[in-house]
Simulated scan of single mutants.
Amino acid sequence: MDFAKRLYERFSSLVHELAKFGSIGAVAFLLDTGLLNFCNVVLDFGPLTSKVVATTISTTFAYLGNRFWTFREREQSGLRREYFLFFLLNGIALLFGMLTIGFTTYTLNLHDSLSFNIANIVGVGFGTLFRYWSYKKWVFLEATDPIPVELPDGGVRQDR
């Protein structure tokens, strides 16, 4: 039991960060999937246009959630810079979804909802791995100034 406690203490910040990232990702995934199906089935935008629309909206939600909750302790390098990089990296991650949906729809010629949604889930899975790695590396940077462990002494040191 001691080993498990030490292991948790060592990785607790990573565990909490991953839990927050996963929570935001789960809500963004539900938003993305719901919008994807709404745009494709109800609005008849087509599979790839629907994916772009759904991802743009869910990405905005994910940025706000990750910036102000998951990675709030990290250094803020400017909203414009972060937002630009976030969307650029999500654009790259969007390619995973578009490739899997496009391959399923146009190469395999599968047009049913189940195949469409499975392709989306596979693309989102690959995109999520890429996003987590890239957000930590380029968007939400580690703080450059170390956080003090304890408060400095209140007294003034006088050398004679």
Rank of each mutant, 00 (worst) to 15 (best):
K136Y: 02
Y135W: 07
F103N: 00
A54K: 12
T33K: 09
V122T: 04
H111N: 06
V27K: 02
G25I: 00
L151E: 07
G65D: 11
G46P: 04
N90S: 15
L30D: 05
G127C: 05
T49E: 14
L94E: 10
Q158T: 08
F116Y: 14
T128N: 05
L95M: 13
T144V: 11
V139D: 02
E142I: 00
G154D: 11
A4Q: 11
E142F: 01
L18D: 04
L95T: 13
G25C: 03
Y135V: 01
G102N: 01
F96G: 00
L95D: 00
S113M: 06
G154I: 11
Y106L: 09
P47M: 06
E150L: 13
I57K: 10
L151K: 15
A28P: 10
L43S: 10
H16D: 14
F140K: 06
E17R: 12
G22V: 01
A26Y: 04
L85P: 06
K51Y: 01
T70G: 02
L88E: 07
L18A: 14
L99S: 06
F21A: 00
S134W: 06
L141W: 04
T60H: 06
L114T: 12
L30Q: 03
L129S: 05
I24N: 02
A19C: 13
N109G: 00
R80D: 09
A93Q: 12
A28Y: 12
R6S: 15
L48E: 08
Y83C: 13
F45Q: 01
F3A: 15
F96H: 10
L89Q: 09
F68D: 09
Y132F: 15
H16W: 08
K136F: 01
D32K: 03
F87E: 12
K20H: 11
G65W: 12
L89N: 12
L95W: 13
R74V: 06
R80I: 15
A54G: 11
F126E: 00
F71W: 06
L35D: 05
T104P: 03
T59Q: 03
Y106Q: 08
T56W: 09
T104I: 03
D153T: 09
F140H: 03
T105A: 08
T33C: 11
R74Q: 11
S58Q: 10
G155A: 11
G127E: 05
R157H: 06
S12D: 09
F96A: 08
N37M: 04
T60G: 10
V139F: 05
S113H: 04
H16A: 14
Y8I: 13
G102V: 08
G97A: 12
F45N: 00
G22F: 14
G34S: 05
S115E: 03
I147A: 04
Y83W: 15
G25V: 00
N37E: 04
E142K: 14
L43D: 05
F11R: 08
V41R: 14
F84Q: 14
T105H: 13
F3G: 09
I147C: 00
L18V: 12
E75P: 04
L141R: 07
L151F: 10
D44P: 02
